[in-house]
Design a protein around this nucleic acid. Structure first.
Lengths: 223, 223
DNA sequence: ATCAACAACATTGTCAACAATGTCGTCAGC
DNA sequence: GCTGACGACATTGTTGACAATGTTGTTGAT
């Protein structure tokens, strides 16, 4: 795509366009409510209109954008209540993933997790919130991928999309950084101990707390 | 659509085509592996090619069909392990739905559930497995819709699609009919008692047992 | 009989032109 | 100034023709 240093001669496929748009939504370059005009995307990506339309329909299926007849696509925005529902679903699925991960984790996986944990600890010490964010994502992904359940992994990926304007800020709360990391350590201990049920409960609490933090930030924002 | 007695004059939309195909997969009219040729669907539904292609891409996004370049769409088939993963996801999500339903159920909802339960009991007595199947679906839907979590509801709907050839047969096991109904009664009692955690555990066990039955049938089939 | 090469056909992918609709500014009338 | 009708423009929806690819059947040599 044109944005990179080396534009590929091959015109981008529908999936690539979808990725491109998804990425821009993830990074906040496309904000909720913003209209996604086909021609603009064509100009920026070099794709044909069919491909762009295909990509937008795909994203609509993922719940990321909204398409209205003759009005086109726009980035979907969600209420706080929908975010609550998303977190509830994440608690269920990621909890289950944690359960299965704990039940089948081998020493190699645990070692990788331990390594990640050390890096996360360092981030907390150094107050490096965005590196923490990246590693945090990786930590959660490691659990989910390691659970051996691709169906859950795919559904979680779909739930992990920030369609709420406040989802970006939750990690920059210093308090939250500390408690989240403490949660991670506790979960690691439970995994090592082979306590699948306990690890699942801990994961659910961890995600639930994440939402609480988010809701608190939202509250403060409006007062 | 042509199959009904009164074909609508308006050409069907992409969503309707998707529903049409989905329905045919659900009822076993389209079996896993079967190719879905665009022209055939056009002939049978009267839709335009764009709409058919849109519908197929949508279904691909749902994981129901598989699209290969220049080879078109075909009904996706899944291994027993993928079915296991699906059931695992259902345990997580429907368990959570049950939890929230129990926590917020009002007398009216409980009454509707009680009514359904009576009809289910009758079905078991009368040995009416397919009516039981329909009511059973309604029972589960009532719980999920009543949980107040649309996100979970949508993800469950996506998980509820039978892409495995044996998913149809599991209800016709007479033993299973009885235990499943007993599960339902037990869950109803837990709901009335307001025991959200207990109801969640019961739902998870119930769904897990469903998979066990399925796996047993599969085993017998291959021996 | 087997196999490769080839050709006719079937099916899907792409694109561009056109139609349908929404959007926004303009202007007359009050 | 306000409002509603009107028209130019922008954007999306639809269709059909054509290109690219896969599929199947045929033929002829071995």
């Amino acid at each position: 795509m044109p944005q990179s240093t080396e534009p590929p001669p091959r015109p981008p496929t529908g999936l690539e366009i979808a990725d491109w748009v998804r990425q821009r939504i993830r990074t906040g370059r496309f904000v909720p409510g913003q209209r996604l005009v086909e021609v603009d995307i064509i100009r920026q990506t070099g794709a044909s209109r069919s491909k762009v339309r295909e990509a937008l329909q795909r994203l609509e299926g993922e719940g990321l954008v909204e398409i209205e007849e003759f009005r086109g696509a726009s980035v979907r925005s969600s209420t706080l209540d929908e975010v609550r529902q998303i977190y509830r679903a994440r608690m269920a699925l990621e909890g289950m993933a944690m359960h299965d991960f704990t039940a089948k984790a081998d020493p190699a996986m645990i070692a990788r997790l331990q390594d990640l944990q050390d890096q996360l600890d360092a981030c907390v010490k150094d107050r490096a919130p965005d590196r923490f964010g990246r590693l945090n994502n990786e930590w959660h992904r490691l659990i989910v991928e390691g659970s051996g359940n691709n169906v859950i992994a795919e559904h979680l990926q779909r739930l992990n999309v920030p369609i709420h304007r406040l989802l970006f800020e939750s990690f920059y709360d210093d308090d939250r950084l500390n408690t989240a990391n403490a949660d991670h350590r506790a979960m690691l201990a439970l995994i090592v101990a082979g306590d699948a049920d306990g690890a699942e409960r801990a994961m659910r609490r961890h995600i639930g707390d994440g939402f609480e933090t988010l809701a608190r930030i939202e509250d403060e924002f409006y007062s």
